[in-house]
Design a protein around this nucleic acid. Structure first.
Lengths: 185, 185
DNA sequence: GATCACATGTAAGAAGTTACATGATTCT
DNA sequence: AGAATCATGTAACTTCTTACATGTGATC
């Protein structure tokens, strides 16, 4: 049995975008298909049911827009904002680093807009810590097994390690950015 | 309606590992939980049903192992090998680069073992080409929108671009590795 | 007048998640 | 004897995918 009301990554992407500004399902589809958020599905069979679920759960409210075409503009409810913030400020855990990097980056992407000041920096520190703890375990595996691995398998693992290292460097650079901003403001 | 028999990424991971050597469901779970392939789920609720589907589709064959505990060791059928190879040597398409990098790397990871000589290099070339075509579109979006983006959103996008650039550099390095090997052999 | 973009929806099916369930064997 | 590990499974539920369906308004 699945825990009720655990919203999907797509659901949170929708909440974030709707919080930025009220949008229709069609707006959201177009946003996904025309920006780097194209990594989300823009299919109507994903978006519309997801919006209906969010509405049933009281996280968004759909308003029929006056205009020529039938169109529903969604906006966040207070519960929707609370739920989004709760998700966004959850601890950064290993399992997210290993299996859900995209969700982690989505949480960060909306940090400046919807979380309290300081949340972004706290997030980056926690993220950095988890990455720094995880990478050595990958290196260790590579070291112990490189001789028994086929070349393409080894290269694939090296690619994974590099990807995490890039992520690690990014967290440091991003932290520096926030440090600067603090000094300026 | 969904196309029948389109195996999931998990299904292909199972096929690849079973092709390496016959394994039980339990072996596969342990492999996922104890190696960098931990990005796959090791839950019995995912693995066992997936194995049953593969068996129903005639891609694997389960043999009851003699021994103390009841245990089923799976091995690939000829159809399983053909299906895996077909998947592995599919063209590298943009949509995989955008939404399914993991599957792409999984395909590559088994390339030396199960694909014909030269497949790895062809794969890397195609992968490189797609990455080189995709990255500028991300840069362009960043350039046009950076002033309207919140800082964390901009940083998240920069992270995505860096990740793809790292991937691109890796494809070049990996191609060089294969070039050398050719010279040696 | 036809085609394209706007706009929303549903149906069928696949596959994953969490949780529960069961029993054997080995270790302490 | 009790705990841990080996080993496999199912049930309920959620969400996604592909495909089909429908109608309006704008453009050529």
């Amino acid at each position: 049995m699945v825990k009720p009301n655990r919203n999907s990554t797509l659901a949170f992407a929708l909440l974030g975008l709707i919080w930025q500004e009220p949008r229709s399902g069609y707006d959201l589809r177009k946003f996904f298909s025309s920006t780097p958020m194209i990594s989300f599905s823009d299919s109507p069979g994903a978006i519309y049911p997801a919006l209906h679920r969010l509405e049933q759960r009281g996280l968004v409210r759909g308003l029929v827009a006056e205009g020529l075409r039938r169109r529903r503009i969604f906006e966040l409810t207070a519960r929707g904002r609370a739920e989004f913030r709760r998700w966004q400020t959850q601890p950064v855990v290993r399992s997210d680093v290993v299996r859900n990097l995209d969700a982690l980056m989505l949480r960060f992407a909306f940090m400046d807009q919807f979380a309290e000041k300081g949340a972004a920096l706290r997030f980056l520190k926690a993220f950095h810590k988890e990455l720094a703890a995880y990478i050595p375990s990958l290196r260790k595996y590579l070291k112990s097994n490189r001789e028994y691995m086929p070349e393409s398998g080894r290269l694939a693992l090296e690619n994974g390690i590099r990807a995490y290292e890039t992520q690690l460097r990014w967290t440091k650079d991003a932290m520096a950015t926030y440090g600067q901003t603090k000094g300026e403001g």
